[in-house]
Design a protein around this nucleic acid. Structure first.
Lengths: 198, 198, 198, 198
DNA sequence: TGAGTTAGAATGGCACCACCCGTC
DNA sequence: GACGGGTGGTGCCATTCTAACTCA
């Protein structure tokens, strides 16, 4: 399965999502993470401690792709319309991480419109990330808005936990973090990977 | 005074910062906000209610620039190195909003390195945004890191408040929001503007 | 269906009624709102956020009228007698919003007399608006007075809620307002639209 | 003293204000109320029981004006710009009643702009009317907005009382109404008249 | 006196850091 | 003495409750 993670806007936990999904898919079948972000965030994250899966540059992707069952592609922050359609064409699932706020939602609709023009929306699946804790209903509200717009979403949402930041800082996956909420954080991506593989 | 707001990464409250500083500088002297972001976030924000200051497109900037005492420029999300140096050369203060997390900090250093290559770091001033509430010490820690790296920062930081999201949603400044923390949110930018004008 | 909203007196929630009916009719079939008020209240209201239905100026009305199933016309505050008869002739239903107080009732009778002179009272339907809360029986009393005068009224009345003011202020429909009574306020117009369509 | 009561919008308690001020000024010196409203609201109000002061039609105004110390003029609901400037020129004080809501405030600014064009704003004085009871802060907020816009206002505001409606219905002044709040309602206009005469 | 609307105050839940105290 | 787990306290936010006021 080829999973592409893309978004029109930075700060949506795109790299975090790509890395954790790669790790979870890797537990299932050999998985390759392709770092297509010009900031090379995933590569530098990997460099600190090393992940249990292989991380390669965009240019090396073709060379390795045959050897792996799953491929997760972390794309650049703001792809052009053409890029986006090509990305969608070249994958099985296009995951778009989205934080629950109005401005992100606006840019999401730009993205989905672009996909619809290319008849490429079939592979789209939106993942809510950095969802604030429960007295806030931002997560539920955005899910409702997306359901109304007939856009496919993961039922699982990724909650806002300090553990994710710590993981990025230390260059490890969130389940290796020493924090009371690391397990909760990890379980969110576990549930997403279950949805993905089912 | 010409104030440019720029960052290498999205989701750092760049547009929010540009708009609120424009509003506060405008209370001092006539101020123009130049919307250089290709998403035209500031322009669309302005369209809903209308701000007390003028907002123009990048292309119209030159025409209006003579009529205003202060100019605030909201730049695109990821300027090229060359763009960045030109932006720095064309302003009095280059404000870089920064959220206190490791990945944002990494991209900030890319930006400051670029500035140093062009000997343009003199105008740089970093503003911490979306800082989590107080039991967290993220804000202080990042401020300390920046101080150690001899990077100039605003002493004031912008805290994370729901009121900012609501303001973006309704297309108004945060002080018009009906929320118990709207006043606190507004006071943060007031303090930044004081630092800026002193 | 062409619905005209008119009154001899300001402050009767005429624009609020026109906008909410347009929204509710639009949920049924494509609807156009014609802003005939010289203050352009509906147009400026629409400008802030944008309604799900089209709003046009009086002069453009003819051009668009063919494309829509329903047309709601918001007229000027105090039409001349001749204007009023022409408005009545050019619509299917003439809705007159009315607040339950003696002075408004007086001006209403001026209006109905004018209609009777032109044999145009058949299309008239009166809508009570800004009705005070229940210990007050103003609404029922005025409804009784109108029934006695053989004037057709909506059984539903629009109650007085702060949410309507907030909606006007933010330029949105009342159901988007964050207020405990927003749902009640919205349901009033929902019931009116049901009466209108049955 | 010649007092003109005018507004751009109906439903602002214009006639109620004119009648009560005429009554209170009449207690001071002989006062004439000129009914310039085409609805003849004041005249019909007077017809029921009779006021202690004289009420005349606009056309008869000139004839009687010499005999009275104070003249209160109740004008039509939406004067043209030219009318308004003439009204302002022909009086000592131009009272504009205003209800505390956003739409009324918008039309008020249209009116004040018109006055400023004719350099006639010196006589302007705004009176807040139909102010909701105390948990609501609408009155204070609008007063603050007007103070910010440097528009002169009465310190006293007229609160929203059922007694005013009852007075209009029965054709009497509010102090003759049998209601626990009639005294409060009356005292509001008493305080306005004190401000006016001082 | 009681009903109804409204704004402000109080409550409870959640994430997070810091402190405390026991154990190795 | 260092480490580790549990506890308390802080801050934000949504909801619920309360107080104020009008009015039958």
């Amino acid at each position: 399965m080829i999973v592409t993670v893309a978004s029109f806007k930075g700060g949506q936990a795109k790299t975090t999502t790509a890395i954790h999904l790669a790790a979870l898919l890797n537990a299932h079948k050999p998985t390759l993470l392709v770092d297509g972000d010009p900031n090379r965030s995933a590569t530098s994250w990997n460099r600190r401690k090393g992940f249990p899966f292989k991380v390669v540059d965009e240019k090396q992707a073709v060379r390795f792709s045959r050897e792996f069952e799953h491929i997760v592609i972390d794309t650049q922050a703001r792809p052009t319309e053409e890029d986006l359609r090509e990305l969608a064409a070249g994958c099985d699932v296009l995951i778009v991480p989205l934080t629950p706020d109005a401005m992100s939602l606006d840019t999401l609709f730009l993205l989905t419109d672009t996909l619809k023009k290319g008849n490429a929306e079939a592979k789209l699946k939106i993942l809510l990330t950095i969802v604030p804790p429960k007295p806030s209903r931002d997560g539920e509200e955005v899910l409702a808005t997306l359901a109304e717009a007939k856009l496919p979403t993961f039922k699982t949402v990724i909650r806002r936990y300090k553990a994710f930041q710590k993981a990025a800082l230390e260059g490890v996956l969130v389940n290796e973090i020493d924090s009371p909420y690391a397990e909760e954080a990890w379980s969110d991506y576990v549930n997403v990977s279950k949805e993905l593989l089912s």
